[in-house]
């Protein structure tokens, strides 16, 4: 996989990062609004996620772009194809997905995952060479449900000493 460049062992300067228990490797993601795109991830060789329908509160679209070949897919969670996706032109759900992926992961990381080169202020969509490639919605949708299920886990009363290794840290602006 080539979506992540070697990650520098971040955090405090000065001391030996190799022997630092509290080395910071993952920063929190920047805040973004979740109402339209509650879920987006770079996984399974796709930029994939879930886009809430603008008209029906109970409906969501599962949208994805494959890293190799830029295959576009968009359908409801019941596998009903999105009517707005024709040929190589992304529908508004896919556009939203890509722009929120850029917010969450940063343009360089998303571009690298999709194997395209985009200038820092460039346009991701115009760098793609897409085609229509419907894929079943079930895998992505079940990953989204698993994601949501974290919010249903009960609070825990016992302290978790292991979390001392994960000091709260600020997102890098």
């Amino acid at each position: 996989m080539d979506e992540t460049e070697p990650i520098a062992v971040g955090g405090q300067t000065g001391a030996d990062p190799v022997r630092r228990s509290g080395a910071v490797l993952v920063r929190p993601v920047p805040v973004r609004k979740l109402a339209k795109v509650p879920f987006v991830e770079l996984a399974d060789g796709r930029v994939q996620g879930v886009v809430s329908s603008g008209s029906d509160i109970a409906r969501v679209y599962v949208s994805s772009v494959t890293a190799v070949g830029h295959g576009l897919s968009c359908s409801t969670n019941n596998n009903r194809p999105c009517g707005a996706l024709h040929g190589p032109y992304p529908c508004k759900h896919l556009r939203l997905l890509l722009s929120e992926a850029t917010l969450q992961y940063g343009l360089p990381r998303v571009a690298r995952y999709l194997r395209v080169e985009v200038e820092p202020d460039g346009d991701l969509e115009s760098a793609l060479d897409p085609h229509h490639e419907p894929t079943p919605a079930a895998t992505v949708f079940s990953r989204f449900l698993r994601h949501l299920s974290y919010l249903e886990l009960p609070e825990v009363a016992e302290p978790m000493p292991e979390l001392h290794w994960f000091g709260g840290t600020r997102a890098v602006d």
Binding site: P28, V29, P30, V31, R32, L34, P38, Q104, H147, L148, Y150, L151, L153, E155, V156, E158, P159, M160, L163, A171
Partner: peptide, 10 residues
Amino acid sequence: VAAKVDTIVG
């Protein structure tokens, strides 16, 4: 302690 997801931050 609470469970959360990556987009719940700040």
